[in-house]
Design a protein around this nucleic acid. Structure first.
Length: 523
RNA sequence: GCGGCUAUAGUUUAAUGGUAAAACCUCUGCCUUCCAAGCAGGUGUCGUCGGUUCGAUUCCGACUAGCCGCUCCA
């Protein structure tokens, strides 16, 4: 468990580096910040853009079966009614006023207990309209039933009641028909005493706003809590205008908004975040499980390709009984963050739920025609959904390293380095004249910089000693430094020193070779 | 939203009921022929709002933000 010891430190180091080097700032910092919102600084903006661009290139541009769209953040309110977000995108919570514990209502189970001197059955009590005397409660777990039985026995013993004990039907507290009278009889799982639980309070996580000048009920709109609905709502538009054929995907990158109860862990859970989602439509008779598996593998490989180590990646298969009712299967690709193993990429098999919902709500069929069977059908969908900010954090955590380096005298000092893949690095190459006060060096360096700048994100730096500039670039994750030295201007061949970030090794390279190197690694 | 802890420069920290210091970073100049050199100089700080006090960065309260737990999952 050495992880737990170094975990908080690593997280602090990352937050500190992110601030110091201009990757991430707290939003509205001069006003004290705003919980759950972040700004990306110059380096962070480049890194985030590179993550998006890599994904877009690999997911859309380099595939023949995926097209990209960009839909509006505010959509027709009926979209969210049809998708179930208005009704279901909320967590009813129950508080215990005594213990200050808070429970998700759908995870707090309770049941009435009948006790009487005469033999009673649940049916008998109901038939005779006899109210239950006591309730028992327990949190959802594998032991729920056992715990409830134990509580019931306990009540019976405490009250020293003779007779038989019957437990009624198990319910959870998200039941909308619950009355305050019943709630007041349910014991808190924390204290075991009744009377301290509040009624479940719904907390819809969608941000609400009003469209137009009037702010009445008819103008209510929502900031999207996911980008996926854009793909479903525009499904027919894409099918009718782009000659796509099954199986095919529609992808989108964009901001989403969720009024999270507890934003936590830096940018891992924030209230404004950016998603990269793709809806892959398949025939209703297609082998969805096979397709699902193929996409999980694709996503894992993509994460590895941008530099996340396989050792930090794992899978979590959602157990069947916990799945949303429309889902046939969901697998999360997990990442070992400094604060624990957490979800990075969810790949869900959603059946035809979304298109069917929108067809019913809008009255516009969302069907395709099958030439073989001459029948219409609603396609099914596989949905890989990932957060840009979560990838950003994973990439940063995986790339961050502090290593011991020996100088020429053998003294050990520390070097902070971000081992970002060249595709993601905010700066691809730094161009450094060996000395600042020699014009031949700076002129050649500026000429090279101007040429590289047309195609790549590069940086010119002549401030301070050369070693210091190398270290500065290490901390920004720049994979290569090119130094214009006296060999460049005095020896034939017009070669530069290429210094590699990870190995710190140096070799001589020509301008043509440098461009070839970048072409190979940067795209 | 609840509970615990916390808030001093861009970062990491120090001191103090009489308005703050160091290192690193950053900027300027000199110097410097390959891994955070040196010299000279410069910018920049007590989260916000109240209260107690002659005087508050220091004590108290509220708010805001951060961390940890409950919770959550793109």
């Amino acid at each position: 468990m050495s992880d737990s010891a170094e975990t908080p430190n690593l997280m602090e180091a990352l937050v500190s580096l992110a601030k110091r080097r201009g990757f991430i700032y707290a939003s509205s910092e001069i006003y004290g910040g705003l919980n759950g919102f972040f700004d990306y600084g110059p380096l962070g903006t480049e890194l985030k853009r590179n993550i998006r661009d890599c994904w877009w290139r690999d997911m859309v541009q380099r595939r023949d079966d995926v097209v990209g769209i960009e839909t509006s953040i505010i959509m027709h309110p009926k979209v969210w009614e049809a998708s179930g977000h208005v009704a279901g995108f909320s967590d009813p919570l129950v508080d215990c006023k005594v213990s200050k514990q808070r429970y998700r209502a759908d995870q707090l189970f309770f049941a009435p207990v009948w006790i009487s001197g005469v033999e009673l059955t649940a049916t008998f009590a109901q038939l005779n309209n006899i109210p239950p005397n006591f309730y028992v409660s327990a949190l959802e777990s594998e032991q729920t039933a056992v715990e409830l039985k134990a509580s019931a026995d306990n009540i019976k013993r405490k009250k020293a009641m003779p007779g038989f004990l019957v437990m009624g039907d198990l319910r959870d507290m998200s039941d909308p028909t619950l009355t305050m009278e019943v709630i007041s009889l349910i014991p808190s799982p924390a204290t075991g005493e009744a009377g301290s639980l509040t009624a479940p309070r719904a907390f819809n996580m969608m941000f609400q706003t009003n469209v137009g000048a009037m702010s009445d009920a008819s103008s209510v709109a929502y900031l999207r809590p996911e980008t996926a609905q854009g793909m479903f709502v525009d499904f027919k538009n894409v099918v009718d205008t782009t000659r796509v054929k099954l199986p095919f995907g529609i992808a989108q990158i964009g901001k989403s908004f969720r009024n999270e109860i507890t934003p936590r862990n830096f940018i891992f859970r924030s209230r404004e975040f950016e998603q990269m989602e793709m809806e892959y439509f398949i025939h209703e008779d297609a082998d969805w499980a096979k397709c699902h598996e193929e996409w999980i593998t694709w996503c894992e490989n993509w994460l590895k390709s941008i530099g996340l180590p396989a050792s930090h990646l794992s899978r979590y298969t959602h157990p069947k009984e916990k799945l949303a009712f429309y889902s046939r299967g969901t697998v999360d690709i997990m990442f070992k963050y400094p604060f624990g193993v957490q979800e990075l990429w969810g790949i869900a098999a959603r059946g035809s739920y979304d298109l069917t919902q929108h067809a019913n709500a809008s009255g516009k069929p969302q069907e395709l025609f099958d030439e073989a069977s001459k029948k219409k059908f609603v396609p099914h969908v596989i949905e890989p959904a990932v957060g840009v900010d979560r990838i950003f954090l994973a990439v940063l955590a995986a790339a961050y390293a502090v290593e011991d380096v020996k100088d020429e005298k053998g003294n050990v000092e520390q070097r902070t380095v971000l081992r970002l893949s060249p595709r993601l690095a905010p700066v691809k190459v730094a161009i450094l004249p060996l000395l600042k006060n020699k014009e031949q060096l700076t002129n050649r360096a500026r000429a090279l910089h101007a040429k590289l700048q047309k195609r790549y994100a590069v940086q010119y730096d002549d401030g301070g000693a050369i070693g210091k500039r190398y270290r500065r670039q290490d901390e920004a994750g720049t994979p290569w430094c090119v130094t214009i030295d006296f060999d460049t201007i005095e020896e034939p061949g017009d070669t530069f020193t290429l210094r590699e970030r990870d190995s710190m090794a140096q070799r001589r390279i020509t301008e043509a070779e440098l461009f070839a190197l970048l072409d190979e690694h940067v795209y």
